[in-house]
Design a protein around this nucleic acid. Structure first.
Lengths: 215, 215
DNA sequence: GATTTTACTGACCTTCGGGTCAGTAAGAAA
DNA sequence: TTTCTTACTGACCCGAAGGTCAGTAAAATC
């Protein structure tokens, strides 16, 4: 009995809510696409999650793909918007700045919701060149620029070696990507210990593995 | 006219070839799964590529998934088998060994056929825990062990610092994974220059970014 | 050449899921 | 209360693709 109230948290919500529907559908879509990607995502399930019937989706979105685009776009902007201002102040040693940047990156990209987005785009990016492109500029592009600034400042202050890394700073954050990828594939069977990995990452990034610095 | 000969290279091949069929089907399967992943892979297309009809596939494989498993398994073993012996001799400085290992890894994993396999498993691995598991031991496990050996030997010879990296050597090869992932997503729009990336990778791995080695 | 075996075919079956639309009822207007 | 508008429903449609199997013909056996 009381079929309406037991699968959604809200009770007594009105049945006709034109304004709220699109956002609710997009939200349900994000969760479904995160779990299953585009192909395995199921519109009946999305509808059920959103507390509506499948037909209603088509009142607001032209097709599954249109809903997917809307979901991705909203997700990209919301996830990326968050980590905007956090790194803006350039106080501290280069070592501190880089450490803070990495912590931030692991937090968002490895543990947080950005990972699901990353996975979707890695999987289904071919069909979304425009999304891929804006994702690139919001993440890789921006991150690389920020890193270059930090490193250049470090060189000026006499803290940082001049090296090819200055032009390709992605190698510095690569282990974080590795960690995310590893957990995507092996989390259930062979999880990585975050603390140890992070420590090793920091250590290699700052000092390398060799004892001597001569060629 | 002559419908039989124009899509397959062989002409005059006998029509009943029980022994060769499985390998041919697996081969066609690999190519199809590489291009489309599991879900979008199409058995009619695989059959056409193998020069047979769809029904024939089911003479040799129980299901699409069984064919997928066979294809993955053959692919993994063949790719891994190749790079087996190449690293077996431990001659040279640690620097030389690590450089050689990385070159090998980039060659196979980034440019070569291993990338497609990696992508499929990353994308669709959830449904194949056993494949994922064996893939892990064949690649990550084996690679980590090899790295640890090289590093331990380096420490003994006084070439390598003692550091947390010794226990988590994956951070050393992480940039190669990053490179592969980057190209998967952005190759068409924002390709990375391999030579520069590789140089930066090597440089960071050996020396880190800091000028001083004190804390 | 006649008979038997079996690799192989392709039309067909079935399921799944995206997409449709005639019908329903909630809420506004009168 | 009656009428009208429209948000919403869910049974249905249909194409796509995994899977089946009676039939065919190539080769082996006699």
């Amino acid at each position: 009995m009381n079929k309406e109230a037991d699968d959604q948290t809200d009770v007594d919500k009105p049945r006709r809510r034109k304004d709220e529907r699109p956002a609710e559908i997009v939200s349900a879509g994000i969760s479904e696409f995160e779990k299953h990607g585009f192909y395995r995502a199921n519109l009946n399930r999305i509808a059920k999650t959103a507390g509506i019937s499948k037909g209603t989706i088509y009142l607001y979105f032209e097709s599954k793909e249109a809903l997917f685009l809307a979901a991705i776009e909203q997700h990209v902007t919301s996830v990326m918007g968050e980590s905007e201002a956090e790194m803006s102040d350039g106080e501290g040693t280069t070592r501190q700045l880089l450490t803070r940047l990495l912590q931030n990156m692991y937090a968002r990209f490895v543990h947080g919701e950005a990972q699901a987005l990353f996975r979707i785009l890695l999987t289904e990016g071919d069909r979304l060149p425009n999304v891929i492109s804006s994702y690139h500029s919001m993440t890789v592009q921006r991150g690389a620029t920020l890193l270059k600034q930090i490193l250049a400042r470090g060189v000026k202050r006499g803290e940082v070696r001049s090296s090819p890394v200055l032009d390709t700073p992605q190698v510095l954050i690569a282990p974080a990507v590795y960690f995310a990828v590893h957990n995507m594939m092996f989390k259930s069977t062979q999880p990585l210990d975050f603390e140890r990995f992070f420590e090793a990452h920091i250590d290699m990034m700052f000092h390398g593995v060799l004892l001597t610095n001569d060629m």
